[in-house]
Simulated assay, not measured.
Amino acid sequence: MTDYLKDALRKAAMFCAYQERTQQEVRDRLKEWGVLGDDAEEVIAELIQQNYLNEERFAKSFAGGKFRVKGWGKRKIKQHLQQRGISGYNLEEAMKEIAPDDYRTALTELLDKKRRSIRDDNPLIVKQKLVRYALSKGYESDLVWQVLGADE
């Protein structure tokens, strides 16, 4: 490995150590640094071997964090992971990070909190706003309707 590649590997390792990254994010950063083609792939392979880069770990961390911290639903999490080039096995493993009971509880709490902020007396308008909000957060419509129906 040339000095130029060792330097790129060192910088990329620091980039990955700061927070979990996808291969595509590292590839884009290497491109910014002028490391292209086979050289970039060699650096990425070395990062994977040294366990700086692990897409399953990234996907699990991302899914768990967005669910717990931002209150995102599975549809939105899955969409964002796919945009980052995560698919197949890693995507499925990431979704397993979200326990079904926790998921339903989080949706219920999200809707309760939102309901308190809605200033409208018409129950149909309130329900419409709650559904729209939950869908925008990435929750599945059938689950949203189940949770809202259980409140009636």
Rank of each mutant, 00 (worst) to 15 (best):
residue 49 Q to C: 12
residue 46 E to K: 00
residue 65 G to Y: 02
residue 86 I to H: 13
residue 65 G to E: 03
residue 73 G to W: 10
residue 65 G to T: 10
residue 15 F to Y: 07
residue 140 E to C: 05
residue 72 W to R: 14
residue 152 E to H: 13
residue 2 T to K: 00
residue 120 D to H: 01
residue 18 Y to G: 08
residue 128 Q to D: 08
residue 97 E to Y: 08
residue 64 G to R: 10
residue 75 R to K: 15
residue 24 Q to E: 15
residue 56 E to T: 15
residue 22 T to S: 07
residue 129 K to D: 14
residue 40 A to T: 04
residue 30 L to G: 02
residue 81 L to E: 02
residue 150 A to P: 03
residue 25 E to P: 09
residue 87 S to F: 14
residue 112 D to E: 11
residue 148 L to R: 04
residue 110 L to T: 01
residue 114 K to Y: 12
residue 133 Y to H: 10
residue 123 P to C: 01
residue 69 V to E: 14
residue 136 S to P: 07
residue 126 V to D: 06
residue 78 K to T: 13
residue 101 D to V: 10
residue 50 Q to K: 14
residue 105 T to Q: 13
residue 44 I to C: 01
residue 43 V to G: 03
residue 147 V to Y: 02
residue 17 A to V: 06
residue 115 R to E: 12
residue 117 S to L: 04
residue 34 G to L: 09
residue 98 I to P: 05
residue 94 A to Q: 00
residue 105 T to Y: 12
residue 65 G to F: 05
residue 84 R to Q: 10
residue 25 E to F: 09
residue 123 P to G: 06
residue 99 A to S: 09
residue 1 M to E: 05
residue 92 E to C: 06
residue 72 W to S: 10
residue 39 D to G: 03
residue 15 F to S: 03
residue 36 L to S: 08
residue 3 D to M: 06
residue 150 A to I: 04
residue 149 G to C: 05
residue 118 I to H: 00
residue 125 I to V: 02
residue 50 Q to H: 07
residue 41 E to W: 01
residue 102 D to R: 09
residue 6 K to D: 09
residue 119 R to I: 14
residue 131 V to P: 09
residue 125 I to K: 07
residue 122 N to W: 00
residue 123 P to A: 01
residue 117 S to Y: 04
residue 110 L to I: 00
residue 106 A to G: 04
residue 100 P to I: 13
residue 125 I to D: 02
residue 83 Q to T: 07
residue 122 N to F: 01
residue 4 Y to Q: 06
residue 47 L to M: 12
residue 2 T to M: 01
residue 100 P to D: 11
residue 36 L to F: 12
residue 31 K to T: 10
residue 136 S to M: 04
residue 105 T to C: 05
residue 61 S to E: 07
residue 65 G to W: 09
residue 119 R to M: 15
residue 121 D to Q: 05
residue 132 R to P: 02
residue 75 R to I: 15
residue 59 A to G: 01
residue 30 L to V: 06
residue 13 A to S: 13
residue 48 I to L: 02
residue 95 M to F: 03
residue 71 G to Y: 09
residue 127 K to R: 11
residue 92 E to S: 08
residue 61 S to M: 06
residue 113 K to W: 09
residue 29 R to E: 06
residue 112 D to P: 04
residue 9 L to F: 09
residue 57 R to E: 14
